[in-house]
Amino acid sequence: MARVLIAGCGDLGCRLADILTADGHKIFGIRRNVETLPDSISPIAADLFSQPPEIPENIDYVFYIVSASSHKDIAYYQAYVLGLKNVIQSLNGQNIKRLFFVSSTSVFGQNDGEVVTEQSATEAKHFTSQRLLEGEELAFNAPFPATIIRFGGIYGPGRTHLIDLVLKGKAHCMEGVYSNRIHSEDCVGMMSHLMNYDKVEDLYIGVDDEPTLTCDVYEWLADQLSVPQDIEHLEPTENSRAQRSNKRLSNAKIRATGYDFKYPSYREGYGEMLENY
């Protein structure tokens, strides 16, 4: 049995705690408000952005799954830099087997439909990617091994933004632009898998098997929802292409570890969501 700390017990953190508890591990979770945490988590009430939290001894693994509260530089700094600094400081002296830091594929700046792997170049185009890369560097410089997981667009129960846009007739897309996504259950499945994988490396991309043209996703959703396919197709300008993410992310590395996706494409994931929508 491992003693696991989850810093940031939102949707993904709580889902991960349920999986790891079922596997027999002891879970500690950090959150400001711990009253609604599931029974699978031993609560640690703390504000990661104010001071280093008090963490129990003999922690084996750490998952840092904190999200920015708003699209502002200060919020990204707090979530991906300051909070992580405080957690690492609190863990000083402990024999941590591995820290898992949840990042984002937005740190990849490619925008011409290129295939992107873990070896592809990153680019701090905006404060968002800059802060994410700062956090990754902090994790790699921690006094214990670290693994970065860069997730693509996360969807799943409670994350119905695309469905809502299609239903309201507000969906629009740029022609020829690829998007990449991963179901929330595969996010936590990947994290659990990597914690138990004996040859874990320092960086993984977390996306499903199928990079897809955004327009195709909207049109498929409209067909499944039986609503008019009046998706507005926009012809991208040179400037909009430069600003827009447009890449085909590869999941070959996580696939090579033996991880089997529950939702290998958007059709399986959104299909199940629509059954219960």
Rank of each mutant, 00 (worst) to 15 (best):
P145M: 08
R15D: 05
R3C: 09
G153P: 04
Y64C: 06
L162T: 02
E137D: 11
L99Q: 10
S245Q: 08
A121S: 14
H126I: 11
M273G: 06
I154R: 03
H193P: 10
S129V: 04
A171C: 07
T212P: 03
S179Y: 01
L91R: 04
D209I: 09
Y155H: 08
G83Y: 00
P43Y: 00
K97V: 05
E123W: 10
A124H: 04
L5P: 07
V115M: 07
L48Q: 00
G258E: 10
I154S: 04
Q224F: 13
L274P: 10
V107Q: 08
Y77T: 09
H161F: 13
N95C: 03
D47M: 06
I205Y: 07
V177A: 14
N276K: 15
Y263A: 06
V66H: 03
K247Q: 11
L132D: 00
R131A: 01
V227C: 13
I205E: 02
L84W: 10
L221K: 06
S104C: 07
S265I: 02
L234V: 14
Y266E: 08
G109S: 12
V217G: 06
V207Y: 08
E235G: 04
S245H: 12
T237R: 14
Q224D: 09
A124N: 07
E35M: 02
L138H: 00
A256H: 10
M273L: 15
N86A: 03
E238D: 13
V87N: 04
Y80C: 06
T147P: 14
K26L: 13
A124K: 06
H161G: 03
F49M: 07
V200P: 13
D39F: 00
V188K: 01
L138V: 07
E118P: 08
K253A: 14
N180C: 09
Q224I: 01
S103C: 07
P264W: 02
K168V: 07
V102F: 14
L213Y: 14
H71A: 04
S192W: 09
